[in-house]
Computed example of a mutant assay.
Amino acid sequence: MSHTVRDSKKLLSRVRRLGGQVSALEGALSAGAECAAVLVQVAAIRGAAASLMRELLTEHLQEHVVEQPDRKRREQEMAAITELLRSYLK
Rank of each mutant, 00 (worst) to 15 (best):
H3V: 05
S2V: 01
T4E: 11
R14W: 06
R71W: 12
A79L: 13
M1Q: 14
Y88V: 12
E77H: 14
E75R: 14
C35H: 11
Q21R: 08
P69V: 04
T58C: 04
R6L: 04
A33H: 00
L25E: 02
V15D: 10
R74K: 13
L56M: 11
R14Y: 06
K90M: 12
L29Q: 04
L89M: 15
A37N: 03
C35V: 04
G32K: 05
A37E: 05
A31H: 03
A44F: 00
Q41N: 04
G32N: 03
A79M: 13
E55A: 10
G27M: 02
V38T: 01
S23N: 12
G27D: 04
E59F: 00
A24N: 03
M78F: 14
R6K: 03
E75F: 12
A80P: 06
Q76F: 08
K9W: 11
E77S: 15
A28N: 05
E67S: 07
R73A: 13
E55V: 01
K90T: 07
Y88E: 12
A31P: 01
A33I: 00
E34R: 10
G32M: 03
A43F: 03
I81K: 08
A48I: 02
G20T: 03
P69F: 07
L85D: 09
M78D: 11
T82V: 15
K10T: 04
V15F: 12
L11H: 09
L29G: 05
D70Q: 09
A31Y: 05
A44K: 07
D7L: 05
A33R: 01
C35D: 11
R73Y: 05
K9P: 08
R46N: 05
K72A: 14
Q76Y: 00
S2L: 15
H64E: 14
V40K: 12
S87E: 15
A36D: 06
E26G: 04
H60T: 04
A80G: 14
K72W: 07
R6I: 03
L61I: 07
A50M: 07
L89R: 12
L11R: 12
L57I: 03
S51A: 14
T58P: 00
A31R: 08
E63W: 02
M53R: 13
K72N: 12
K90E: 12
V15M: 13
S8Y: 10
R86I: 08
R74N: 07
E67C: 06
I81T: 15
Q21G: 02
R17Q: 13
L52T: 01
A80V: 10
L56Y: 10
T82W: 14
L12T: 07
K72D: 11
T4V: 08
L39A: 05
Q41Y: 03
L11P: 03
K10A: 11
I45R: 00
L85H: 09
R71F: 13
K9I: 11
R54A: 11
E67Q: 10
S13K: 15
L56F: 06
M1R: 14
H64I: 00
